Simulated scan of single mutants.
Amino acid sequence: MISIQSTENLTGARISGDFWDFDELVHAIHHITTIDESDSPYEGARIRVLSVCYDIRHAAQGDHNIEFVMNGMHKDIMKSQNVIVPEQNVYLSVEILWPELLFTTIALNEFIQLYKGRNNFHYWNLHMTTIQKFQANVIDCLKDSLKSQDFKLFMSMIQLHQTSIVDYAIQYIDLLNLKFIHMSLEERQASLSTFAYKIAFKDTEYIAFKKQILKTASIIKSPIYEMELSLEYPEEIEW
């Protein structure tokens, strides 16, 4: 079962699970985010979500962290069943920056709505259920990382209104990621709810940023999601 917990320095969240947990989630994300040409305004958000999916897939391949967790077996069970088995399971994990994870969680809401419009949708669809459980784990982790009043306000606002990810300036998430990385633990604790608001709702900073990106994109005749900023992430992140 996938679990999500904030990292020690609140820089991001650590997603943990076994190979099959991650394999199921990766397949679900790819399935839910499949779009056709008529949905091209969602391509930028889709690419961004799939970048997180890429990290999860590599975690499943053992390219990130390996953990050992108790599996509920103990000597009495082994004795009664006359078997000798490990008392721990191997879990894999990967850290994702909080702004990136929040955008992914919110964007998946809209991809689910698009998915529901397809002919093959039904309410017991396994892929959609897998995605919603993943989102619930993220929100539950966010609840533990925010002050109670901040979390309640965020949830009440997001249930009433949420920004569409159509033609989203995904480079804005890079700016938020880098700002968050360079904060102290205390600053992150004080600012996480603000970052959550910025991602869920388009504020004046985002609007000004997108206007600038669109201006440049129109000059070089490039889709907005293909615009690259000269930004560099640190080689090592203190999670």
Rank of each mutant, 00 (worst) to 15 (best):
Leu50Lys: 04
Asp203Glu: 14
Asp167Asn: 10
Ala45Val: 11
Ile66Thr: 05
Glu187His: 11
Ile35Trp: 07
His31Asn: 09
Ala190Ile: 14
Tyr168Met: 04
Asp167Gly: 06
Ile165Cys: 06
Leu178Pro: 01
Gly72Thr: 11
Asp63Met: 01
Leu108Ile: 13
Thr11Gln: 07
Ile84Pro: 01
Tyr197Ala: 15
His58Cys: 02
Thr7Pro: 01
Asn65Arg: 13
Asp55Arg: 06
Arg48Tyr: 14
Lys215Thr: 15
Arg57Ile: 00
Ser191Gly: 07
Ala107Asp: 03
Gln159Val: 14
Val52Tyr: 00
Gly62Ala: 00
Phe201Asn: 12
Ile15Ser: 00
Asn65Ser: 12
Ile66Leu: 05
Asn109Glu: 12
Ser38Tyr: 12
Leu231Asn: 00
Ile4Ala: 02
Ser16Lys: 01
Met1Trp: 05
Ala107Ser: 09
Phe111Ala: 13
Leu192Tyr: 01
Lys147Leu: 15
Ile219Asn: 08
His27Met: 01
Phe134Thr: 07
Glu24Val: 14
Leu101Asn: 01
Ile181Arg: 03
Tyr115Pro: 03
His27Val: 00
Ile47Ala: 06
Ile165Tyr: 05
Glu8Gln: 12
Asn125Phe: 11
Val69Thr: 07
Met78Phe: 09
Gly62Pro: 00
Ile213Val: 14
Leu92Asp: 01
Gly17Glu: 02
Asn109Ile: 15
Ile47Val: 11
Leu146Ile: 15
Ala169Tyr: 06
Ile139Lys: 02
Gly117Cys: 10
Tyr91Arg: 01
Lys198Asp: 15
Asn109Pro: 05
Lys215Tyr: 11
Thr34Gly: 06
Asp23Tyr: 00
Asp203Leu: 12
Cys53Asp: 09
Met155Asn: 09
Asp167Arg: 04
Ser51Lys: 09
Ile56Trp: 00
Lys221Asn: 06
Glu24Asp: 08
Ser164Lys: 09
Thr34Ser: 08
Met183Thr: 08
Leu178Asp: 06
Asp174Gly: 03
Thr130Ser: 03
Val49Lys: 01
Asn120Pro: 03
His30Arg: 08
Ile66Ser: 03
Trp20Met: 12
Ile170Pro: 01
Asp23Arg: 00
Glu24Gln: 08
Ile77Pro: 02
Gln5Met: 10
Ile47Ser: 04
Phe22Ile: 09
Asn120Asp: 13
Ala136Phe: 03
Lys202Arg: 10
Asp144Gly: 10
Met128Gly: 03
His182Val: 12
Trp98Cys: 03
Asn82Asp: 13
Gln113Lys: 07
Ile4Pro: 00
Glu236Gly: 02
Arg14Trp: 06
Met183Cys: 07
Gln5Lys: 11
Gln149Phe: 09
Lys221Glu: 13
Lys147Pro: 07
Glu186Phe: 05
Lys133Gln: 12
Met73His: 02
Lys143Phe: 14
Gln159Met: 12
Leu214Met: 07
Trp239Arg: 04
Lys179Gly: 03
Lys221Cys: 09
Thr33Glu: 05
Lys79Glu: 15
Glu110Thr: 12
Lys143His: 15
His31Ala: 11
Asn71Ser: 12
